[in-house]
Design a binder for these strands. Sequence first.
RNA 1: GGAGAGAUGGCUGAGUGGUCGAAAGCGAUCGCCUGCUAAGCGAUUGUACGCCCCUAAAAGGUGUACCGCGGGUUCAAAUCCCGCUCUCUCCGCCA
Length: 426
Amino acid sequence: MLDIKFLRENLDLVRRKMLERGQDIDLDRFSSMEAKRRNILQEVESMRSERNQASKEIGRKKVQKEDASAIIARMADVSARIKELDELLKETEDALRDVVMIIPNIPHESVAYGASSEDNPVVRTWGEKPVFDFVPKPHWEIGEYLNILDFARGAKITGARFTLYRGLGAQLERALINFMLDLHTSAHGYTEVLTPFMVNKESMTGTGQLPKFAEDLFKIEGLDYYLIPTAEVPVTNIHQEEILEEKALPIYYVAYSPCFRAEAGSYGKDTRGLIRQHQFNKVELVKFTTPETSYNELEKLTLNAEEILKRLGIHYRTVSLCTADLGFSSAKTYDLEAWLPGQDAYREISSCSDFEDFQARRASIRFRREASGRVEFLHTLNGSGLAVGRTVVAVLENYQQKDGTVIIPEALRPYMKGVDRITPAG
RNA sequence: GGAGAGAUGGCUGAGUGGUCGAAAGCGAUCGCCUGCUAAGCGAUUGUACGCCCCUAAAAGGUGUACCGCGGGUUCAAAUCCCGCUCUCUCCGCCA
């Protein structure tokens, strides 16, 4: 969430930034709630002060066996009034919170203005589109032909948007997970963590999924637990309510996790194949940094994710999301889009974001400056490194052969017991 | 699932209704002392929000809240009552 003081003092700026995002936020309601809160707070605090004074007086009189009944009677009224004001204050604070918690982050100044994803500038491109002397197939056809992806049985076991992997397909998924984790831990300096895959409401609120996006989440019936839509949630919340030492920063974490998404509102979109599933695997990169280093760290994090695609030899481009396409919590986001020849399209395979102090403020993650001893919110970042299911898609479609087999990229062979090709025989 | 014990500041740990944001010790920081180190002496040592001052911020002044979380009793709650969460021990069950 945004800083209340900043919001109060920069209403016009914030309003303008929200319009750039295509969001019409009711900031007048914020202003009135915020002013009301301060009025009540001042009144109730002065009454509490009065009561505290009187309490000391009462204590003294009691000790000295004097009569205190007059003050006690007066304080009964004051206390009753405090109780009323407390309730009003709580209502007002809740209302204020409701407003502030659904205001998105302010885009960084380097983010391009745009009206839709069409306006996302391409930052760079790596590799080239592979040339085929046949018509490349979409991955669902390849996967079914090779008997490594079974969409019908996935649907039978659970439902639409669930897939059964088999044989070398299952191995390929696992190989990719291990390849990614190994690269990020040994070459890029991340610490591997394995987290709970269900989290509570506080964690979901801390990273911004709640309260606004409840319909995108799977909730456990009868409990206040949710299936994570990304490891970002448990990993960022590792340091919830903590004050870290400046010298401990930056902190880099990498985590494998399955991700569960309700995909409400995407009916009919990407219904075939692995692109849009209710459950998919992802290796996630998360950073905690000082404010002054976070944008440099975003560049590095994005390159860390890109390195996976480079080593796999998959052509991709990096785009910077424009104001309209930016996620709720993000101040700046790069998407990596892998080339998928079977679909003749670039598709998002990673999303790397700098949240500045937006999540840190929600989750109360702070650090202490070594020089001044002062406490301030740190910056959080994260990025997919990468979405594993979509990486399988990219491998299958980019490395497909005329005979229907698929070559395994060099970098992956150590993780596939040396297997260099997937054939229908397995 | 059953039975019991516990949760206080960075840590240990006192505190069973009033002058307690909280004793004491440890740790840490600064200063003194010191050839160096150790010891010793003194001071400081949480977070949030509001107001004043100032205003770019900080510092400063002042008030309020916070002793796991939420509610209740009371003029007054770390302290009494109720609910919850978490931790530990024992029994049962289980990968």
